[in-house]
């Protein structure tokens, strides 16, 4: 509490698909709460975690809350560094067109709307992981 100015690099690492277990939803809850702490936040989606960002989720038939719209709100919380592993996408036959269009308004660029998602090679994601101070895995 007394070191409120400390800014650390936080990475939320998501490797699990949504709905089959609660990890994706509860990870998102941590991200939303964490956004209030003004830390340097990134999200990485690798392995089955990439399925969390699939567009057109519709949960009516399973009676569970569709929380996918919450990802769209991340930009409003200044969470706009969302990294997706290209190999995980390729392995699953997915392209960026299969994912939700997540954006944020760049306040340093006259509030231009910009994409939050970057699809990166494993090499780049590795380098990113190495830079982090805290890695929260779900």
């Amino acid at each position: 509490m007394e070191d409120e100015e400390v800014i650390k690099k936080f990475l939320y690492l998501n490797r699990k698909a949504p709905y089959g277990s609660i990890y994706a939803l509860e990870s998102l809850e941590v991200v939303l709460i964490g956004a209030a702490f003004d830390q340097n936040v990134s999200l990485a989606f690798i392995d089955d975690g990439v399925y969390q960002l699939k567009k057109d989720q519709s949960t009516d038939g399973i009676g569970m809350k569709n929380f996918s719209s919450t990802y769209r709100a991340l930009g409003d919380y200044d969470v706009n560094k969302i990294y997706v592993d290209k190999d995980s996408m390729d392995e699953r036959g997915l392209t960026i067109d299969d994912l939700m269009n997540l954006t944020y308004e760049d306040e340093d660029d006259d509030y231009a709307e910009k994409p939050s998602i970057s699809i990166l090679t494993s090499e780049k994601i590795s380098a990113l992981m190495e830079e982090q101070d805290v890695i929260l895995s779900f």
């Binding site: 890695i135 895995s137 779900f138």
Partner: peptide, 8 residues
Amino acid sequence: NKSVQAWL
């Protein structure tokens, strides 16, 4: 090590 990553 500077950080720990759990591959859960």
